[in-house]
Design a binder for these strands. Sequence first.
DNA 1: AGAATAGTGTCTGTGAGACAGTATGGT
DNA 2: ACCATACTGTCTCACAGACACTATTCT
Lengths: 207, 207
Amino acid sequence: MSTRAKRDASLTNYARPSVAVDTAVLTVRDGRLCVGLLTDERTRRRRLPGTFLHEGEVLADAVRRSLREKAGIRDVEPAQLHVFDALDRDSRGWVLSVAHMAVVRADALGALDAAPIADAVGLDFDHDAIVRFAVERLRLDYDKHPDPADLLTEPFTIAELREVHEAVAGALLQPDTFRRRVLPQLLDTGDMQRGGVGKPAGLFRRA
Amino acid sequence: MSTRAKRDASLTNYARPSVAVDTAVLTVRDGRLCVGLLTDERTRRRRLPGTFLHEGEVLADAVRRSLREKAGIRDVEPAQLHVFDALDRDSRGWVLSVAHMAVVRADALGALDAAPIADAVGLDFDHDAIVRFAVERLRLDYDKHPDPADLLTEPFTIAELREVHEAVAGALLQPDTFRRRVLPQLLDTGDMQRGGVGKPAGLFRRA
DNA sequence: AGAATAGTGTCTGTGAGACAGTATGGT
DNA sequence: ACCATACTGTCTCACAGACACTATTCT
C-alpha cells in the first residue's frame, strides 16, 4: 500500500458532516436594500437559496451553481461570511452551512423575491442571522469604498452614488458631506449629465 | 418510512468532505505578538494546531479539544475566521479547514512554540494565510476595545495597556495620544501603582 | 423669471498627532 | 537635588456635520 493510499484511508476514520452553502443575495431596489428569498411551495416558509457542496467543488462554485440553478443568477462573486454549525440547525441531519453574500443589480435577482431587509425576518433555519451578517458586511464595504459591488453603471453622478449609499446604510446622508468624502476616491470623467432638470451633474468613474 | 427517515436518507446522497479546524493561538511575549506553532518530528515542518471535527461536535469545541490535547491549553474562546477550501490544500484528501483564532496570555501557550509573527512564515498547508487573518482580526479588535482578549490582569496601568497595544499593532504608539484615546473606555480604580521609579501610575479596569 | 438640482464657502466641533511643560514619586 | 515616569496644556491638522450661498441648466 502506498503512503498516499494509507493516508487516504486514514481520513475515512473521521466523521463527515454534510456541508451546505446558503447565500444572502443583496440588491438595491427602489432606494431600499433588499435580499432575495425563495418560498417553499409546501410550507410557505421563506429561505435563502442554498445547496449542498458537491464532491470536488469549492464553496464559491457551489454558491454560483445554487444561484444559477435555483434563480438563474449568473456572474456573481460570492463572499464568505460565517460557518453555522449548531448541531440541531437542520432537522435532516448534521449539516454545516457556510453562509455567503452576493451582490447583484436590481434587475438580476432572477427567480428570487426581493424583500426589504426589515421584512426579511422569520426565515427558515438560521437564515435571519445570515442576512444580518451580510448586511453588516455590505455596510462595512460601502463605508470604505464608493461602489465595491459594482451596483452602478459607469459613468454615474454623485447623487446616484449617494442614493445607493443611503439604501445600503438605511439612512439619509448629507449631500455636501457625502460629496466631499467620496470625491477623492472617484475619477472625474469631465463629462456632464444632460437632459435632466436643474444644473447638470458631473459624471464619475470608480478610481 | 417516516418523513424524517426519508429526509435522513436523502442526505446520504451528498458528498461529505472531511472538516478540520486549525487555530492560530496568539499571545504577546516580550513585547511582541507571537503565534503558537507545532513542529512535525519527521518533516520538521511547522504548522498550527488543528484536528478533524468529530461527529456531534461543534467547531468551537473541536478547537478547544485540539488545543487541550495537542498543547494542554484550556479555557479559550475561539473566534472563527475563514473556511479554506482549495481542493488540493491537503494531500490526504478532500478536507475543508475552518480557521480559528484564540488569544492566550504568554504563560498559557502550553506545548506550543511561540514564534513572532514576522517569523511565522513557510508553515504547512495554508497556515500562513490563517496567521494573516488572525493578526488582522486581532488588530481590528484592539483598535476598537482596550483589551478584548483579556491579556492584562486587572488592575493595570495605561503604560501596561499601551505595551500590549504596541505589540499587537507592531508599532510604537504616542503615550499621550494613546492615553487620551483609551481613557474614556476604562474605569479608574482610584488606586495608584506603588514601588516603581517615577511618578506612580493610576490603576484601571476594563469598563 | 423661476424652479430645480449641483456644487462651494465657511463655521463648528471632534479627535489624532506632536511637543513641551508640570506633577509626583523614588534614590 | 536629581532622575524617571505619569500626566496635562496647547497648538496644528484633518475631517465630519451643518447651513447658507452661488452656479447652471430646463421650462
